[in-house]
Design a protein around this nucleic acid. Structure first.
Length: 349
DNA sequence: TATTATT
């Protein structure tokens, strides 16, 4: 399916702009031994995938559902945080050979505002925990590559990111670097904290990054602190709360006959005019960017296993479902123009 | 001067 392939390539291009390491990992995973890195030998589990940059709203069931589009999932776990997941999870397939295909199919998939990363997990160990560094006071001219060049002598860099101002796209002078081992990160702190890069007048600060839980707590504390002085110190703008339809509230509206597409699990969307080779992955790729997708299903002929021309997608939030329908109805997929609407009990027109 | 990568 030409269009699908093009779509995936586009997603990969997005990834290139985000992080070089992501790409290196992705290629490594997709191509196998050809681009083997010496320091990866024996340090990855071919039976388990780690999924990073997941939307926090994504549940374990949604993660399972997403990877079920590739093969039978044995287990799917998200790391629980205060509100939803911490942004990463683990997936095992019944048949481990599906893992490679999951990487090539799902790595780089855009879900909501995130671009997920799918790669082989490293064997769990205490050594690889708390190996993430926070660096501040960097020259604004320093690129991600410059940053890695500065830190690479201390160990194997898993990933790095220079934070940029959203409006201007310019460096904010702060960055994160994750090393493979905590001892490597410790080494980098020892040697580079307080060090002034050549051509710069300011020393950089290198320290261990606050872990996600701490970061969220301090962020919350700070919000509470500032929020209170604001709340009681000035005029209160009554923020009109955006009204959200929810399956629950509709169910309470009586009967639900006048409203279609909803159920206890979300809003069911009907997609008509899919090609014979349509699969679950393409539905995830099309609908995922619009919001929380609970489930996707391609209806296939029992005997031929070919798509019968239609499928369903269930989304949690009405507004996101409506936006997806509005955007994707009439969308040209391959040589067909899709019809996308809320599922009706009577069937489509 | 803070993103969410080890169950």
């Amino acid at each position: 399916m030409a269009l699908r392939r093009g779509h995936i390539r586009y997603l990969k291009v997005c990834e290139v702009q985000t992080s070089q390491n992501d790409v290196r990992d992705g290629q490594h995973a997709a191509k196998g031994p050809a681009v083997k890195r010496a320091d990866d030998g024996g340090r990855r589990r071919p039976d388990q995938l780690i999924v990073n940059y997941l939307p926090q709203s994504m549940s374990q069931d949604e993660l399972r559902s997403l990877f079920s589009s590739v093969g039978d999932v044995e287990s799917a776990k998200t790391h629980p945080g205060q509100s939803g997941s911490l942004g990463y999870g683990f997936v095992n397939f019944v048949n481990p050979s599906d893992a490679e295909r999951a990487i090539s199919t799902l790595n780089g998939l855009r879900l909501q505002s995130k671009t997920i990363k799918v790669s082989f997990a490293r064997p769990s160990s205490d050594m690889i925990k708390d190996a993430n560094l926070y660096i501040s006071g960097l020259p604004r001219t320093l690129s991600q590559q410059d940053l890695e060049d500065m830190f690479t002598r201390f160990g194997h860099i898993i990933n790095s990111r220079v934070l940029v101002d959203q409006a201007s796209g310019l460096s904010r002078g702060v960055a994160f670097i994750r090393f493979d081992k905590r001892s490597e990160a410790e080494d980098a702190v020892k040697h580079l904290n307080g060090h002034t890069p050549p051509g710069s007048s300011e020393p950089i600060t290198v320290k261990f990054a606050a872990n996600p839980n701490q970061a969220r707590n301090s962020q919350m504390m700070s919000q509470m602190y500032h929020g209170q002085s604001r709340r009681f110190g000035g005029p209160v703008h009554h923020q009109a709360q955006r009204f959200r339809f929810s399956p629950m509230s509709v169910d309470h509206m009586g009967g639900g006959n006048s409203v279609s597409g909803n159920s206890s699990t979300g809003w069911c969307i009907f997609i008509y005019n899919l090609g014979q080779d349509a699969d679950e992955a393409i539905l995830w790729q099309m609908f995922g960017p619009f919001g929380a997708v609970v489930n996707v299903k391609v209806i296939r002929d029992f005997n031929t296993n070919k798509c019968k021309g239609f499928g369903f997608v269930t989304m949690t939030n009405y507004e996101e479902a409506a936006m997806a329908i509005h955007s994707l109805n009439g969308y040209r997929l391959g040589d067909k123009v899709l019809q996308v609407s809320f599922k009706t009990s009577k069937g489509h027109k």
